[in-house]
Every structure is written in structure tokens, then in C-alpha cells.
């Protein structure tokens, strides 16, 4: 078996060597340390730690809020991508640039700003309070923060696919007598669906691990509004290193499974995309 094909270009050894050393030092060895650390726990200790009621409550909140936020993002992200690709309106380029704001704005800044808006006396909260709707310091607040940080993932995955979509398909559907809605739901949506699902999964994965934008708006009440990443920090601050590590391993395994799924989705999406 040939490990590397011959090439007249120089620098493979240096570039590859540096890449592998740097990757190992910064990413692989530190991550391995996390798994080795859990190995010092017995299986029962590990299981009791990661299934304690407070920990399970945090999974439920993290998963539930991330799922809800990713769903909202799938709907509105698709809508925004659609509007940006299909229509012209004043300020379109600004809107297009603004979609990336959650990527660029530090999470702590987003966190305090969303909190200041959604507390009872805040810019948005004061209008919701008379209706008995409270956002800040409830699971809904967590969801709002996760919607903020996840939005660009859906828009930026769906947008290029919509742009490349062949208009002939729509014309064919229309000339065969389909209504606009039929064309959308039977022709356009199936073509965009793999990309939409990828964007949804990316937003969900990002939301699961998110910390900075959530801690301010959530209120951090154990059992009620405590997300899993925060629980890891709480355990660390109590010098419960083993507990923090165990919960971190659970989260990490979930993240890696999601990463694998997203990779498969992206492959499916691009194959689908080429086929259509």
C-alpha cells in the first residue's frame, strides 16, 4: 500500500509534521486526558454521577431547549434564506451581512443584551409581562438565547442550495399545472430538505454546548434552568473534578455522534444536490 502518492511539490514532510504535532498537542492529547480521567472512576461511580436527578434535569433542559430553538431556526432560517435568494428589497445586502452577527458577536455580549431586553422591565419584556409571559430566568429564556446563536447555521446552509436550484424544475411543475404551493411542497422543499436538515443539526449541536449567551438569561436555578455546560462549571467550582469530567464525557460523546451524523447528512446533501 502506498501511504502517499509521489508529487513534485515540496514541503509535504514539514507541513504534515507540523500539522500532526500541533493537532496532537492542542487537540488530541488534551481530549484524551479527559477520557483517561474518567477511566479512574468505577463504572458505578460514573453511572451514579451522570444519572443524578440534577444532572438529568440539566440534560432535559439542554436537549429540550436546543431542539425547540433548532426547530424555530429551521423555520425562520429557511424563510430568511428564501427571502434573501428570491426577492429584492431595500437593505437586502445589510440583512444578508447581519445574519452572521451571532457568529461575530461574543456570546457574553449577546447574553447580557438579550437578558436586558427580556427581563420584566426590559425593552421587550415589558410588553410581554402584562400577558403573563416571562422569558428571562425561565426555560423560554434559554430557548431565546439558543435561537439567537443558531440562526446563521440554517440560513448559511440553505442559502447556497436555494441559489443553485434550477428554475427549470419549477417551470416544468408550473407548466404541468401545479399550483405555486404544490410546486413549493413537492418540488422545491424536497430538493432543499437535506440542506435544511443539516442546518437544523448544526444549530442543534451548537446549542447543546452553548454557555456564554445562556448563563445570563437562564437564572441558573438547579433542576429548573440549569443547562449541562453550567453544571460542569458548578462541579468544577466545588472541586468535584471527577463529577465534572463524567458529565463532560457524556456531552462529548453526544457531540461526536452529532458530528458524525452531520458529516453523513452533508454527504447525502451534496450527493442529492448533484443528482438534481
Amino acid at each position: 500500500m502506498v501511504l502517499k502518492q509521489r508529487s513534485i511539490l515540496p514541503g509535504f514532510g514539514v507541513a504534515m509534521g507540523f500539522t500532526l504535532v500541533y493537532l496532537s498537542l492542542i487537540v488530541l492529547i488534551p481530549l484524551a486526558a479527559l477520557f483517561l480521567r474518567t477511566a479512574t472512576l468505577s463504572w458505578e461511580q460514573f453511572w451514579t454521577t451522570v444519572t443524578a436527578p440534577r444532572v438529568v434535569a440539566s440534560y432535559r433542559l439542554s436537549f429540550g431547549a436546543s431542539l425547540l430553538a433548532a426547530l424555530v431556526n429551521a423555520v425562520f432560517g429557511f424563510l430568511i434564506a428564501w427571502v434573501l435568494v428570491r426577492y429584492t428589497f431595500p437593505g437586502k445586502r445589510i440583512v444578508d451581512a447581519l445574519v452572521d452577527l451571532p457568529f461575530a458577536l461574543p456570546t457574553a455580549v449577546a447574553g447580557i443584551s438579550l437578558t436586558s431586553l427580556f427581563v420584566k422591565s426590559g425593552g421587550v419584556g415589558q410588553f410581554l409581562d402584562p400577558w403573563g409571559i416571562q422569558i428571562a430566568f425561565t426555560p423560554l429564556g434559554v430557548t431565546v438565547a439558543l435561537i439567537f446563536i443558531g440562526l446563521p447555521f440554517v440560513v448559511r446552509t440553505v442559502q447556497p442550495v436555494l441559489e443553485d436550484l434550477d428554475v427549470e424544475l419549477e417551470e416544468a411543475a408550473a407548466s404541468l399545472g401545479a399550483t405555486r404551493w404544490q410546486t413549493f411542497s413537492r418540488v422545491l422543499l424536497p430538493a432543499v430538505f437535506p440542506a435544511l436538515l443539516t442546518g437544523f443539526a448544526l444549530a442543534f449541536a451548537r446549542a447543546l454546548g452553548e454557555y456564554g449567551s445562556v448563563v445570563f438569561i437562564s437564572g441558573n436555578m438547579p433542576m429548573r434552568t440549569e443547562i449541562t455546560p453550567l453544571l460542569i462549571i458548578t462541579k468544577l467550582e466545588q472541586y468535584d473534578y471527577a463529577g465534572a469530567t463524567a458529565v463532560a464525557v457524556v456531552m462529548l460523546v453526544v457531540s461526536f455522534v452529532l458530528m458524525l451524523l452531520i458529516n453523513l447528512l452533508q454527504r447525502w446533501s451534496s450527493a442529492h444536490h448533484v443528482a438534481t
Binding site: V27, L31, L34, T107, A205, L208, G209, E210, Y211, G212, P229, L230, I232, I233, A248, M251, L252, S255, F256, L258, M259
Partner: peptide, 8 residues
């Protein structure tokens, strides 16, 4: 590193 939570 993109898949890992910042806290981790």
C-alpha cells in the same frame, strides 16, 4: 474543536 462545548 468546533464540536466541543466551550466549557469542555
Amino acid at each position: 474543536p468546533f464540536a466541543v462545548s466551550p466549557v469542555i
